[in-house]
Design a protein around this nucleic acid. Sequence first.
DNA 1: ACGAAATAG
DNA 2: CGTTCTATTTCGT
Length: 594
Amino acid sequence: MKKLQLITEAKRTCPDVIIVLGEELGRFRNASKALYNFLESFTWSGKVEKLGFDEVFMDVTDIVDFNQALLNPNNLQQSFFQLKKDDMTVGFPYDATTLAGHVYPQPQTKLDQDVDQNLTIRLILGSYLAQYLRRNLDQEKGYTSTVGISTNKLLSKLVGNMNKPKGQTTLLPPYNVSDAIGTVESNVTTFIDSHDIGKIPGIGFKMAQRIRNHVLSRAPDYDAGLIWGETKESVDVRDVRLYPSMGPEILEQILGGSGAERGIGGKVWGLINGVDDTEVQQAKKVPTQISIEDSYIRLDTIPQVLKELRTLTTSLVNRMHADLLEDDDDPDSVATKRWVAYPKTVRLSTRPRPPLNADGTRSRMFSRISRSAPLPGFVFNLKVGVDATVEKLVQEALVPMFRRLHTQPSGWNLSLVNVCVTNMVEAASADGKGSSGRDIGRMFRRQEDFLKDWKVEDRDVPPDLFPNVNKGMISNRRLNLDEETTTYETLDAEEISNLFENMKNEAFANDYNSKPKEIIKTDPSAGNEVYDSLPTYVLLSGSEDAIPLTQTSFDDEWMEEDDEDEDKETCERCGAIMPSFAMAAHERFHDYNG
DNA sequence: ACGAAATAG
DNA sequence: CGTTCTATTTCGT
């Protein structure tokens, strides 16, 4: 039985198979996260990149560096692998003269060409670390695993395929022909040459076809003389690499053009030579998007679409709760949740079924079409139920987007619908790793506090104040909001930057229709805005940074308009005083936050 | 910012 | 349901 096999076909090959419709991916996600966190805990750099649910790249360069320096050349057999830089007791003993697990190529090849001893010992260290992690994973979590050990993501992934399902493989030197003496060939070349061109990570279906066409469908003499393989369709990396005048330029011709990645020729030439400079990405706290989709045999009426939109959106909101909501660590409050990140955009995609051709066939068209819009802030309000939130989201955001996608009331038939939230803005850092994030984050977490001390107003910000603002003027000050009296503390540039980021994120979360924004410290007892003791931060939607205004900037003429005390209104719900034009936004704020 | 395409598991 | 559902990256406008 195969992946994505038709059910009818599966039942034919395996009549007793029990098919369970639907899926429950939540437990897989949890297991995936646990695996990821487990491996991350061993890294020093945090460079752990997830690829799907069950694959991970780890960059252990720093750990290998450290342990290589630790080696005693006179007693390599009794080495100790140190897992923590600052604790020499944590680790395991190993024999640094041998390598753990499988190797490529097989040991019949003579290894004793004195090639690149440095790389050899580093790969040995990597192989023992891999072995340790795999055993640990098996013991602690009961997962068996397969690992590839090499010097970049491309090679380690490919060499990891060699001893499935529970073996590890190290790609041995020499890696560069120039490193070898005499006629020794690079193991990288030998290894990668044998792969089908479409099996190389980064070369997908489209590029593989283009390359195959180029290599196969040349002049007849090449076509006839297919010296390489049994089948004419099979093109491996060697065929491509050795094709006459093949190089980055030719590949650029074949693969380049509109829409293609910049420098794709050079990149692919690198790949087929085993070169991959891409970094292992750092661990990410939150996903960059969350989406739910379903495919349909027939979906061609508005009521059906509405029903499906509700179903998909319900799943999506539940996923947002599962993946973006975290237990509040505030000891004062009980069992509250807080958002770790706020998506700012919602996107609706459909895949219309292409119309039938004249001959009755249907052209293969997988292309999706999509529309996106700002995600309304009410989805973050946890006081109303999921159903109400879903209905509001469907009516106010998704239906309008659907109308933009499909302007005709009928005549379409959708084979797929996808609802996605994206454009994540991370909230204030959860636990106090930094000093600044904690205080500010805690303060903002309480809405009462927010309402009491701050308000966010729509207000036109004169453009001539943006240039020449000197961040440094306030960069050594911070509001200490936990104190009875306002104090200042010394802050470095990074802390100030974090402070702005946190404030900006929270402001956006509380009022999504934010354009230019001001956060103003107020004196609740007096009901007046207090301008003389605190700096003011102008938050500019869409700009990179919050721009702090200095006190001196504040005294400029544009603020004085406010002091002219024209039409001011008092909010009936909280008593805040503000200009009339700001009341609409303020009421939205209450609507969203209660 | 928005929308499409390619890639991968 | 002419492979499903999900996620990331890159490009053009």
